[in-house]
Simulated assay, not measured.
Amino acid sequence: MLPSAKLTCLLVDDNEMNRLTLEHLIELTPELELVASFTNAVDCLEFFRQGGQVDLAFLDIEMPLLSGLDLVRIMPEPQPDIVLVTSHRDFALDAFELRVTDYVVKPLEFPRFLQAVQRVIKNRQAPAAAPQAAAASFAHDQHFFVKVNKKMVRVNYEELLYIEALSDYSVLVLDKQKLIVYTTLKNLEERLPTNQFARVHRSYIVNTRRIDVVEDHMLIFGKHEVPVSKSYQEGFYRRLRGV
Rank of each mutant, 00 (worst) to 15 (best):
K6F: 00
A5K: 12
D55C: 03
L32V: 10
A5F: 02
P76K: 05
E77M: 04
G51L: 03
D43Y: 07
E27A: 15
I82V: 15
F47Y: 13
L69S: 00
P80V: 12
L65I: 13
L10R: 01
D90H: 13
D13E: 13
S37K: 02
T8A: 07
G52V: 11
G52T: 09
Q50D: 11
D81R: 14
D90I: 13
L10K: 02
A92M: 13
E62T: 15
I74S: 11
D13Q: 12
E31M: 09
E33R: 15
S37R: 04
D90N: 14
F48D: 06
A41C: 12
A57R: 00
T29V: 04
V85G: 02
L7E: 04
D81K: 12
V54C: 14
N15S: 13
T29D: 13
A95D: 13
F47N: 05
P64C: 09
R73N: 11
D94K: 06
D94L: 08
T86E: 05
I61E: 13
L69A: 02
E16K: 08
E16Y: 05
S67R: 08
Q50T: 09
T86C: 06
F38R: 10
E31V: 05
L93V: 07
T39A: 12
G52F: 08
T86F: 03
V85M: 06
I82W: 00
L45W: 10
D81Q: 14
F47C: 05
D81V: 03
V35I: 14
T39P: 00
L69D: 01
M63G: 05
L32I: 10
S67G: 14
C44H: 09
V83C: 08
T86S: 08
I26F: 10
L28M: 15
L25N: 06
D70H: 08
V42F: 01
E33P: 06
L10F: 04
K6H: 02
P80Y: 01
L25R: 04
D90Q: 15
S37L: 05
R73V: 03
E16F: 04
L25E: 09
D60M: 11
L59T: 03
M17G: 04
E33D: 14
I82C: 07
L59A: 08
D43E: 15
N15G: 07
S87I: 05
A5H: 12
F58Q: 04
P64E: 07
I26M: 09
V35Q: 07
T86P: 02
